[in-house]
Design a binder for these strands. Sequence first.
DNA 1: TCAGTTTGTCACAGATTCGCCATACAGATT
DNA 2: AATCTGTATGGCGAATCTGTGACAAACTGA
Lengths: 231, 231
Amino acid sequence: MSKRILVVDDEYEVVKLVRAYLEEAGFRVAVASDGPSAVAQFATYQPALVILDLMLPGLDGLEVARRIRRGSEVPIIMLTARTDEADRVAGLELGADDYVIKPFSARELVSRVRAVLRRAEGGLPKQKLLEANEIRVDLDKHEVSVRGQVVELTPMEFDLLAFLMQHPGRVFTRLQLLEAVRGAAYESFDRSIDAHIKRLRQKIEHDPKAPRYVLTVFGVGYKFASPRDQL
Amino acid sequence: MSKRILVVDDEYEVVKLVRAYLEEAGFRVAVASDGPSAVAQFATYQPALVILDLMLPGLDGLEVARRIRRGSEVPIIMLTARTDEADRVAGLELGADDYVIKPFSARELVSRVRAVLRRAEGGLPKQKLLEANEIRVDLDKHEVSVRGQVVELTPMEFDLLAFLMQHPGRVFTRLQLLEAVRGAAYESFDRSIDAHIKRLRQKIEHDPKAPRYVLTVFGVGYKFASPRDQL
DNA sequence: TCAGTTTGTCACAGATTCGCCATACAGATT
DNA sequence: AATCTGTATGGCGAATCTGTGACAAACTGA
């Protein structure tokens, strides 16, 4: 009972490669090369997962995602261009389960497919709401609130907070944070993280001078307070 | 215990730059400028990762990759020209783990190297929790607790403790400890270790005067008590 | 284009940690 | 016991790390 996967991309070479890898990994694969046929294929083929290029002729990739989401909770992995921050955010807002930045390695793609499927069938309801005491992050709505008050964060601030909250207690170096939030292609010095942390604290901490959530680990980096710490 | 990386490229300037960045990032680097010597170097040097230019004189880069793959699962990062979609795809088919498009930023390359290595070794479950009786060290959270009580350590103290606990029972000289904790070429008086040990004991030992965990080996150095000793 | 955001960088102040010294203590050697 | 070598400790200035405000650059959306 191998799983079915729908691959939507208009570059023949990419499709061929991805298909080969996925089939080798034991999946059954269907392919669509444009938006309308993707939607059609999805309806008839009922895949367990969709891999979707955001750049499509005809119907835009985001639009395809929207239509699929309209009637299904199927996991979606987005393929995006390296630079396209805006698309990435938009994709996540639509509930993409993961995204892979082009150019990607086929190996990596397969391992992400496995990871996403594992998560999906693990019965774990997708974690789209991060909470810690009085702070709430809604990944779907891309919205943060503190004590019920909605707080406006910049993309960088939001990504930082979301990432840290997904690993409470764990310490990350500035480089790790840059990489997590900006991908491998970042071009800035790691101290720029300090500035973002500062701005973030000013927006979500009650007393930014004595932070309770976004904590500094001297000589290492930053972490989100683990539940115990917040007491 | 820094990782070895093999860089294969025929452009001297590129190699020089990449090597400088990688070494600064703490890797050891070997270089080859053509296919045959790349294969030879790979065999003798046994790197943890290979960075491979697809455009090589003599033996083609793809061929090099094929030969390396024949006997090894070592991660490979390909360097490709921007335009060459076909090569890119071919490279991935051979199981390259990532590829970087020329011209690339050296910084990006380094961070991709880190990412690929992290993924590669991520497979093996690594010991991220060190325990000994009542002392617990969580490497991820960068947190130490004694009898459930969290203890604040400075970076030096934390690194020392973590290192010693990873080799319980084994004795290290002060110089070895300095090197392990501060990296190879570190100049400082090895007696400074004494001070760190002292402060460490005061934080984690029940009776710092009669330590049970961080033990002195007279005339040699220090060790973490082996399980037997702690009884 | 232009105004308003967002982000990156710099410089400096404040906080923390480290290296090292002087000295006291402990273990080895005769 | 006397002596010598090695280790522990307290403390202080130097070195390192972080927080912050200011400003410039990059980016967005009208």
